[in-house]
Write a protein that binds this DNA or RNA. Structure first.
Lengths: 222, 222
DNA sequence: AATTTTTCTTTGACTACTCAAAATAGTTAT
DNA sequence: ATAACTATTTTGAGTAGTCAAAGAAAAATT
């Protein structure tokens, strides 16, 4: 059985390796886990020893298939728990990430299966993050960010890729949570601002940095 | 914050001290926690250091008020989680003890409060064990065991004080789960057996040892 | 009372994880 | 090509929790 610590390392490696070639630097991992780089080097070698990852000295770490399997299962637990906390327990979506961080390591596969059924087999969590299937498949999402999508087209928010309570609070009060219908009304690269409008609402101003953490899809309805 | 290990020690001390004078022997605690006695001595001194317990060398350990507060909260989490697993997730009551053992250390007070509301503020779990209140009160149950209650009186099962999956399976298939209505029909101290009957069912034979783990209350209806 | 048994405590050692700080490798700039 | 910078690795040490086995105290036997 992988310890909570090992599960955490694997989860963070998985998240950081998305998009790239799978290699994650020690520095990025240390930052993400809030430990010093030396600790990461030590642990990554232990991970490699256990067959969960391969360590390429001075280059980075990459998950093995076994490691990815564990990481995906942890991520699945995390996101299903978040969904439960929001949909069933009606908790604030800006808080559930922290809660799920603990529960993801304590929940058994048996409980997970029941929870999945109770929730109706969801494929994404309240932040729009995709939930890996029990067989370890994660639907590849290739959405465009609000920062670089065409103006004036009808859009639907599908995902918010920043789990910080502060950002999520802002998104919620702005009404930009997943499933919100919006369109980009203005874009000013000089000032680094874009403005979006909900159908029938007043314009909302966002920094480019903020808008790059909101993923959208084309929407039929305005 | 008390670690999972500390929480576990406190919980086991609380459970073992019930009924007695509050003093728990190192041996009993070691047995209950499945560690060697030397480990318990070491840990109990750390608990005392942290203000959770008082260590009386060669006699035993006793919780302080702070320790009891923590222990009751862990027990509350354990039993509310069990109730959730059975009532909401429809899990087998013989398995939920093991599951709750993990979850009791991972669930926050915020989640607990929501869970409590969802379940309708129950006062006992599926095994009939009393659930401590959020303020740390545990309803004192002074029930009689099936082993030494009067014969032929109508009884209601209120609690099963053995969490082993095997025993719970037996109780369930015998139909002696909490709220079952039964009466003692025979008692044979020589063979160590007693027989009970559910209203309209056939007699069930139990050892005295087994029947001492089933608590009952007088029942109006037969 | 002396001896045996039981229970408890101590000691030394080990695993898992962590940090601080020094050493090293790789990269970039001069 | 040398210097400087940055990222990584190594080393030494510390905390939390555990066990095995030796030693000490208390209780039970004889």
């Amino acid at each position: 059985m992988a310890s909570s610590t090992v599960e955490n390392y694997l989860k963070h490696i998985l998240l950081l390796s998305e998009g790239g070639d799978g290699l994650v630097s020690m520095g990025a991992l240390a930052e993400s886990l809030a430990v010093v780089p030396g600790t990461v080097t030590t642990m990554v070698k232990a991970l490699a020893e256990g067959g969960f990852a391969r360590h390429h000295p001075r280059q980075g770490v990459k998950l093995t298939d076994a490691g990815r399997r564990v990481a995906l299962n942890v991520l699945r637990k995390h996101r299903l728990v978040e969904t439960f906390l929001v949909n069933v327990l009606k908790m604030d979506w800006s808080q559930v990430n922290t809660e799920a961080e603990q529960l993801e390591h304590a929940i058994s596969d048996a409980v997970l299966a029941r929870l999945d059924a109770l929730l109706g087999y969801p494929t994404s969590d309240p932040h729009g993050d995709p939930i890996p299937s029990s067989s370890g498949q994660m639907p590849a999402q290739v959405y465009v960010t609000l920062a670089n999508c065409p103006a004036d087209k009808p859009l639907r928010v599908v995902r918010v890729t920043d789990q910080s309570a502060e950002f999520l609070k802002f998104v919620e009060t702005s009404g930009l949570s997943p499933d919100a219908h919006v369109r980009v009304t203005g874009r000013n690269p000089a000032s680094g601002l874009i403005t979006v409008k909900k159908s029938g609402g007043r314009p909302i101003a966002l920094s480019l940095a903020a808008s790059s953490r909101i993923l959208v899809a084309p929407s039929r309805s305005a």
